[in-house]
């Protein structure tokens, strides 16, 4: 990594330290409002109080897909524009995306037990989120094995873009597969029309989750920039010692 690349990330670091506290406070406030609204929201006439799990499950499902979209945009930035910050953004997003996908899977499973009578159903939505989780783990595994950061970023970017092409295909095929195997007892999640009294806390929670992701992503990007700085310093030190 050439030294000139530090110019941009340095500005970015000062930006992060200025913005991050505000983002964190905003996320906490949004969670406070969202959770209060969620607790006060009426129960669903069909699902009872378990509908409260929706306020965790649905926003994390949105984010799990949204973060892959963020990674895809970062991947384009890496491959097309060769922007060093795009490398950092893609790498920092992957573990956070995996964590939100995990939350989506766990809450979905705990929602499924009272609703469907079992922790896991090979329901179309759960299955495609599960595949998404596996793909996140694949990208993280790629970052683990690669040693040189900029090459790892470019290879992971290719994998991310192939994944972005593959995800709609997985979604479609799993939907198709599910209609073939659909057990009769399954209640479809997410009614087509959702009552405004349930929608308001849901949207608030979605805003809170988004702010949380933004804060975590910026912080993780800062960590990654510092990690690269350490790496560069050590390499230069080694070079100097050798010469």
């Amino acid at each position: 990594m050439p030294i000139s690349d530090f110019a941009n990330p340095s500005k970015f670091l000062t930006l992060v330290s200025r913005v991050l506290p505000w983002l964190a406070v905003a996320a906490v406030i949004a969670f406070a409002i969202g959770l209060t609204q969620a607790m006060q929201a009426p129960d669903d006439y069909q699902q009872g109080a378990t509908v409260k799990i929706m306020y965790l499950h649905v926003p994390s499902a949105w984010l799990s897909m949204g973060i892959w979209a963020v990674m895809s945009i970062a991947a384009l930035g890496t491959l097309v524009w060769r922007h060093p910050l795009a490398d950092v953004a893609g790498k920092a997003a992957a573990p956070i995306g995996a964590a939100f996908t995990l939350i989506c899977l766990i809450t979905g499973s705990l929602w499924g037990r009272p609703m469907w009578g079992t922790y896991w159903v090979w329901d179309a939505r759960l299955t495609s989120v599960f595949v998404l989780f596996l793909m996140y783990l694949g990208v993280i595994a790629l970052y683990w094995t690669a040693e040189e950061p900029s090459r790892a970023a470019r290879l992971a970017a290719i994998l991310t873009l192939v994944g972005a092409i593959n995800l709609p295909v997985v979604k479609f095929s799993v939907d198709w597969w599910n209609t073939l195997h659909q057990p009769a007892s399954v209640i479809r999640m997410g009614a087509p029309t959702i009552d405004p009294s349930l929608l308001k806390p849901l949207l608030m929670m979605a805003v809170a989750y988004f702010l949380l992701f933004a804060a975590l992503h910026l912080a993780a990007m800062r960590n990654e920039i510092l990690r690269r700085r350490v790496r560069t310093l050590r390499l230069m030190q080694a070079n100097e010692a050798a010469s």
Binding site: G48, A49, T50, I53, L56, I106, T107, L110, P114
Partner: peptide, 14 residues
């Protein structure tokens, strides 16, 4: 309601 354990569990896990 009757499924309090699952709701609390989901919030705890998250």
């Amino acid at each position: 309601g009757p499924h309090a354990g699952f709701i609390v569990g989901a919030y705890l896990a998250a």
